[in-house]
């Protein structure tokens, strides 16, 4: 009985975490789970805005590398998002593969009823104390 209760509590908590994810994080999660170097050419329009990928030569390895920016973050810790009509920003705090803190601040736009990535900021954070506790757009901290 106790193990069933424990299972139910864990199951419901997991569902609650998933349900609390906003539309921007849900879109990021799909990107993170779906794209690889083998399919990025095919899936680019599903995750990136037309403004971002126009004029890009996706055949260049350095462009492919940047579109797979998710690789900078090995483990996630927290995320926050804010939306204002058709524009939104998602901040994700986490750690790289050397366990150094790192954050993504991503601007999304609503295009054809999908949230698509318009701008990507990778922030090499110095310490966990510097993690943001609210959503930030890339332009809010860049020089």
């Amino acid at each position: 009985m106790r193990s069933i209760t424990l299972f139910l509590v864990l199951f419901l908590s997991a569902c609650a975490v998933k349900m609390n994810n906003g539309p921007l994080y849900s879109s990021y999660y799909r990107y993170e789970q779906s794209v690889s170097v083998d399919n990025i050419h095919k899936l680019q329009f599903d995750f990136f805005s037309s403004n971002l990928i126009k004029n890009l030569n996706i055949n260049e390895p350095e462009i492919t590398e940047q579109l797979l920016f998710k690789k900078y973050m090995f483990k996630q810790k927290s995320h926050f998002e804010k939306i204002n009509e058709k524009v939104g920003c998602l901040s994700i705090n986490g750690f790289d593969n050397e366990n150094m803190p790192i954050s993504f601040n991503i601007k999304y736009i609503a295009e054809n009823e999908h949230w698509l990535i318009e701008e990507i900021g990778v922030l090499f954070v110095n310490s966990i104390a510097d993690f943001t506790d609210s959503a930030k757009c890339p332009s809010e901290y860049q020089n």
């Binding site: 890009l56 350095e62 462009i63 940047q66 920016f69 990507i120 900021g121 990778v122 110095n126 860049q142």
Partner: peptide
């Protein structure tokens, strides 16, 4: 310092 490098797709920022 706070440095931002803008590449074709992503921007990278570091402080030190």
């Amino acid at each position: 310092y706070s440095a931002t490098v803008n590449l074709a797709v992503i921007s990278l920022t570091v402080n030190g």
